[in-house]
Each structure stands twice: as C-alpha cells, then as structure tokens.
C-alpha cells in the first residue's frame, strides 16, 4: 500500500510505496496505476509507475495537491483480470559484434562469458516499468552472480535493440540513445512502434519476458 503521499513540486503527487524493490510491491504500484487510469479523474495529466513509487502529475488549473491527495487516499481499489500480464518472447543475438560489454563483465565478475549468458537465458524476467525513453522496459531480477554496476562513463550512443545489465535489472534500448548499462546482446525486434497509438510498447509493466538466443544469421534475417 501507499506509505506516504507528498508533493513533487507544485503539480505532482509523489506516492511512496517504501524503499524495497520486489514484484509484490511493484504489482501494488501497477494496480494503483490501472485503477487511477480507469477512474479518469479530472485534472490528472500523467501517471508514472516505477519500482516502488507512483508519480501523478496534474493540471493546476483544474485540481490542486490537497484535493487530489484526498481522492487518491480514498480510492477503492479493484483487481484487474489480466493481473499477471502477458508473456513475451524476445530473440537476442549475443555475437561479439553486439555484446559490447561481455569481455568487461568476464573480468569484473570473474566468470566466463558463456556462463554469464547461460545464467542470463535461464530466467524469466518481470517488467517493473517502462520509460526513460519511449518503450524502454526495466526488467528483473537477474541471477546474483551476473550483477554489476553501470559503466563509470556512460556511452554517448547505444545501438537500437541493445540489451543491457545493471545491478539486478536488465533492459532493452528501444532506439539509439545514450546510456550506461552493460551491453550483452541485441534484439532485431522493434519494441516501440510509434505508429501504433493504442499499444506502442511491446512490453508493458507486469508482463513477463523470456529471452531466446539466436544466431547472427537469424538476427540478420529478421529484418529482411
């Protein structure tokens, strides 16, 4: 449940679900997100769920912090049918042309590249949130033996489709962007489709992702 609601500036509510990051707490955040979206409360301009926070932006000409806070505190939460989300398979190629940081991770983690990939592909990942750039999913949790910090100096350009690791999370860069995650592979799939206004994101919060390793030839064929 929400532990505390404070203000983020003058035009947003900062709903704090605590400091822990896990699926259970994140599911609550997503449940609140869906409920608030469903209620279409007047004046709300954006709702941003993350691991354990929910930010609700509003139009100050229509509502204010105090009134909106009261509405959120008194919300009657309902369950949504598709609570478990969708299961999505994502093909990844980990050829050396795509796994830009695998060598670095071998040294850092002191295990072989093959072992890192084996551990990476052996899990299903939960989507905590999407954002930063359009369509970009934050997934978790990775095996504790393959957890590493961000690059000290982020890359200016990370190629579209790159799959990165940092701490207990992994992500997919939906388009070319700066970033500091450890890149281990690349998917040929388009995970953000701006032409699809109803459902532009392939992966959404609450979904489960299964990564499948493909060869360089298969990666190439995908877009032919």
């Amino acid at each position: 449940m929400i532990k505390n609601i404070s203000n983020l500036g003058d035009s947003a509510l900062y709903c704090d679900f605590g400091s822990k990051v896990n699926k259970e707490i994140n599911s609550k955040v997503i449940q609140y997100f869906k409920n608030i979206k469903d209620k279409k409360i007047e004046g709300i301009t954006n709702i941003t769920p993350s691991y354990n926070k929910l930010i609700i932006s509003f139009d100050m000409r229509i509502v204010n912090f105090t009134n909106l806070k009261e509405k959120i505190e008194n919300l009657n939460l309902k369950e949504f049918i598709n609570k478990k989300g969708n299961v999505i398979k994502i093909p990844i190629c980990c050829d050396k042309d795509f796994s830009l940081d695998l060598k670095r991770l071998e040294k850092k983690l002191k295990i072989s590249g093959d072992k890192i990939l084996e551990k990476f592909f052996s899990r299903r990942y939960y989507c905590y949130m999407t954002g930063f750039i359009a369509g970009h999913p934050f997934l978790g949790d990775t095996d504790e033996f393959i957890r590493a910090k961000r690059l000290e100096t982020p890359r200016v350009k990370i190629p579209k489709g790159s799959v990165g690791l940092t701490e207990q999370f992994c992500n997919i860069y939906s388009f070319e962007s700066p970033g500091g995650w450890n890149i281990i592979g690349n998917t040929p799939l388009n995970i953000f489709d701006k032409k699809n206004e109803i459902k532009p994101n392939l992966i959404n919060p609450g979904d489960t992702v299964i990564f499948e390793q493909i060869s360089k030839e298969e990666h190439k064929k995908y877009n032919d």
Partner: peptide, 29 residues
C-alpha cells in the same frame, strides 16, 4: 532507484552539478 520525474525537477548527479529537467525530459530518472 529509478522513478518518475516531471519537468522542472532539479537532479544532482555524482559530479555535484544540478540538471533541470525540461519539456522533452526522459520520463524516468
């Protein structure tokens, strides 16, 4: 832990120099 941001937010990264988020900001920081 990354969370939502809005325009006008002032973040201070490790180098100690503030960055103000403007209209095209990343949605999570």
């Amino acid at each position: 832990k990354s969370e939502g941001i809005i325009k006008g937010v002032i973040q201070v990264p490790a180098d100690g120099n503030p960055i103000i988020m403007l209209s095209d900001h990343g949605t999570i920081g």
